[in-house]
Amino acid sequence: MSIDPSLLMNAVAAGILLGGFYAAVALGLSITFGQLDVVNIAHPAFIVAGSYLVFALNGGFGLDPVLAGIILMPVFFVVGVLVYRVYYAAFERTGRESLAGLAFFFGLMFIIEVLFILAYGVDYRLVETDYIGKQIEIGLLGIPWRMLVPFCAAVVMTGGVYLFLSKTFLGRAILAVSQDRLALQLMGADPIKIKQIAFGLGIATAALAGALLIMIGPVEPTIGRLYIGRIFAIVVLGGMGSIPGTLIAAIILGLAESLVATYIGPSWAPTVAFGILLLTLAFRPSGLLGRQA
């Protein structure tokens, strides 16, 4: 079989762009699960909630989806803080977070899905802007704006979170909180407050990720389920909480899915994430950039 260079080139470009978007989707989980050890399987549901609210802002006020996503981030931050407070008071404080906490987030996922089914039905929704549908042509390479804009937004958001976590006092406290709570108190920080802020930040990223999700393609209320396996695979491959690791792992997954879809068949693409997850757990459980002392 000869490889068509333009097909390969386009598959690689599409994979990298898709991977950037995956980084935005996984970023929040990289904080909540990777740093705080909270198994937030409702994260994709928050992303879909972000998509629908962006859809409403876009349809109602004609706002650009990226702008709408950014506007929603503070709202999502507050929601995240409140969700963590409930989670902490009900489960974490009493040490029942492993199973009961998992059920809590599973339930939260269903509630969010049902709310949007009730509000918008099960039809696919999409957003409209001038640039969605157009693409940049460079020789044989075609780069659609609906992929390029999410890629850029995702890289900027990931970079911002990385700088926040590594360069600020609050950020470093977030990196430390799951390692030794008492020691963090001895540094003068309140671990519960730190975790609230971190969880809020994780959920805030879901607002923009939701905007990107609905730019890339149409969204229905349960579409988030397609992302649960992917984002856990990315966080584990990236090295549990490493932000650069999350970006690299997301791009690896995007590339792998794109190449598999192009050369083996689109129906195989969803298996890639689980394949990567299994291989990571078998051969490099600490992930690509995991910090294991």
Binding site: F169, R172, L175, A176, L182, A183, Q292, A293
Partner: peptide, 14 residues
């Protein structure tokens, strides 16, 4: 009670 998975400098900054 150091933060084992943070660097020496990150520990000091905390």
């Amino acid at each position: 009670r150091l933060f084992p998975a943070l660097s020496v400098e990150e520990n000091l900054m905390l």
